[in-house]
Simulated scan of single mutants.
Amino acid sequence: MKSKKSILEVGVNTLQLEAEAILNLIPNINADFHKAVLAILESAGRVIVTGVGKSAIIAQKIVATFNSTGTPAIFMHAGDAVHGDLGMIQKNDIIICISKSGNTPEIKVLAPYLKQAGNLLIGMVGVMESDLAKQADLVLNTYVAKEACPNNLAPTTSTTAQLAMGDALAVCLLHSRAFNEDDFAKFHPGGSLGKKLYLKVGELALKNQKPSILPEASIKDVIIEISQNRLGAVVVIEHKSILGIITDGDIRRMLEKHSNLLDLKARDIMSVNPKQIDKDVLATTALALIREKNITQLLITEQDAYYGLVHVHDLLQEGII
């Protein structure tokens, strides 16, 4: 069995090889790369990304990144293309064909068909003398000196280089389109990522009860109100005005400070000037305030009127944290 040291050394060496391979791509961000970005920006069609084997998996990732950042893209498996999938290519589409060697049988067969309708063919390839490089209108050179695999066989460094080149394309396109957070939110409405971009704190408050109590309420009533609503707090309201807030922590501090609880009222133990935020503010901003003030509940308002409460657990459940 390999020693722990040797395993760690192999892991570090793998990352070093792949990091070096990516840095070696920098000179290949050249005139053809610039033309590829401009062509995609000016195209009225989509980007069709194709490949076979591990390159096909990278192609799918690049398609996903393009689509999520404002560049319409479709994946086409190189092996299926000559069995009918060529029909997905439309007149104005641009094709990116990914291959390490550029000489696999599928790519050799496919390349001429990709050009027959006059579509721009961009080859992402690691061998500049390959069939794909010669057929392509533009070439993105993803040459790597060796794979991280000790047998120099399993695609590791080469697929990392392809992925990095795809990311470079996508980010250049994103930057050129001035694609911003609002655009990003439109394409990512689901999951924690989308919620961070569009979820407003008022939407969370609406899911909760709206605990409130009068300033002259007894301590017993305060505790009952806090317990029933399970938000760890109650807001003290009089004539629709917010006077303060009472939290679990205020109850604990009350027990430490006072021996006679019968005469105490809500106003005697409430915290005045509670931290509050407008209902239309993003949940991420609310989270930042909660962290800054080291609190667990945040009072939500609408035009300075009491709207609801949000607990840090609400943000946790929504995946904001």
Results as ranks from 00 to 15, higher is better:
Asp278Met: 05
Leu199Asp: 04
Tyr198Val: 12
Lys265Ser: 10
Ile223Met: 14
Phe75Gln: 01
Phe187Arg: 14
Glu18Lys: 03
Ile96Gly: 01
Glu147Ala: 02
Ile98Thr: 02
Gly190Val: 05
Val144Pro: 08
Cys149Asn: 07
Thr156Val: 10
Ala81Leu: 14
Asn151Met: 11
Asp183Trp: 06
Gln228Asn: 15
Ala286Ile: 07
Ile246Phe: 00
Gln60Met: 10
Ser55Gln: 09
Val52Arg: 02
Ser6Lys: 12
Gly166Met: 07
Tyr143Phe: 15
Asp80Thr: 07
Lys35Trp: 04
Ala59Val: 07
Val234Glu: 01
Leu289Gln: 15
Leu199Thr: 03
Cys172Lys: 00
Gln228Leu: 15
Ile48His: 03
Ala168Phe: 08
Lys200Met: 11
Gly249Phe: 13
Lys5Ile: 13
Lys257Cys: 04
Val52Ala: 15
Ala288Leu: 13
Leu138Ser: 08
Gln276Gly: 03
Val63Asn: 02
Arg230Met: 09
His77Cys: 07
Leu199Glu: 05
Ser212Trp: 13
Lys35Ser: 10
His83Asn: 05
Asp182Cys: 02
Asp183Ile: 05
Lys115Arg: 14
Glu181Ala: 05
Val10Leu: 09
Asn151His: 12
Ala36Ser: 13
Gly79Lys: 01
Leu261Lys: 12
His258Arg: 01
Ala31Phe: 09
Gly45Met: 06
Gly319Pro: 08
Lys115Val: 06
Met254Leu: 11
Val310Ala: 00
Leu287Phe: 13
Gly191Val: 06
Ile22Tyr: 01
Asn273Pro: 03
Arg230Asp: 11
Ile246Ser: 00
Val171Gln: 02
Gly87Arg: 05
Val109Ile: 13
Asn229Leu: 10
Val234Thr: 15
Met128Tyr: 10
Met88Val: 14
Gly123Lys: 06
Gln60Thr: 06
Gln276Met: 14
Leu163Asn: 04
Ser101Asp: 08
Thr157Pro: 01
Gly232Trp: 06
Ala44Asp: 13
Ser158Gly: 02
Ala288Pro: 00
Val171His: 06
Glu106Leu: 08
Val234Ala: 04
Glu106Tyr: 09
Ala286Gly: 15
Val201Tyr: 04
Leu214Cys: 01
